[in-house]
Each structure stands twice: as structure tokens, then as C-alpha cells.
């Protein structure tokens, strides 16, 4: 199961859990899985079927380049982080 790291500001929706284990082969599936366990989380992460503006996804230690379609392994970590620009 993928380990989804729950951002601090929406842990009220996961009963304070910092990490939730969810089945799924893509980030999108994992978010759907998370939503089914902890309703309301999806809306905080996505808007109009896309990741919310200003966020990025990291799978394990890499920034995901395919957004919600990014595939994940059974033991992957999924992180939702502020997007980074460069100078």
C-alpha cells in the first residue's frame, strides 16, 4: 500500500493521522482511495479534477512530472508540497 503523507493542515480530516496507507497505482487512485476513507480530503488537494494550483506532488524523493497520472509503486510515499519555482 502506498503511504500518503497527510499535510498538517488537513489532518483534522484524517483524525490526526500523519500517514494513511491507501491502495492505488496512480496518484489519482490514491487520492480517490484517501477520499473514500477520509471524506473531504480530495477537495483540499484537487480542484476541477486537477491538483490545486500552488501544490506539487512528490513520489518518494522525486517531484512527480505527470501530476495525478504519476504511477506509484506498492510501497511508494506520496507527498503534497508547495510548488517550487526557481530564480
Amino acid at each position: 500500500m502506498a503511504r500518503v503523507f497527510i499535510p498538517a493542515q488537513i489532518r483534522d480530516l484524517t483524525d490526526g493521522q500523519e500517514v494513511v496507507e491507501v491502495n492505488g497505482t496512480t496518484v489519482r487512485e490514491v487520492i480517490e482511495g484517501l477520499e473514500s476513507i477520509h471524506p473531504g480530503t480530495r477537495e483540499r488537494l484537487c480542484r476541477d479534477g486537477q491538483l490545486r494550483p500552488g501544490l506539487m506532488i512528490a513520489v518518494d524523493s522525486s517531484v512527480a512530472s505527470s501530476g495525478l497520472r504519476t504511477s506509484i509503486n506498492r510501497d511508494s510515499e506520496v507527498h503534497f508540497l508547495p510548488a517550487i519555482g526557481g530564480g
Binding site: F5, A58, D60, S61, S62, E77, H79, L81
Partner: peptide, 16 residues
Amino acid sequence: NGAKEGVRRVDGPVYS
């Protein structure tokens, strides 16, 4: 105290 490969950052991901 310095960060190295395998360390989990405060924002979550682990350093390569």
C-alpha cells in the same frame, strides 16, 4: 547534525 542521503526532510520527502 547535517542532512545526508536517507534523511527525512521536515516537509516529508527523504533525501537521495
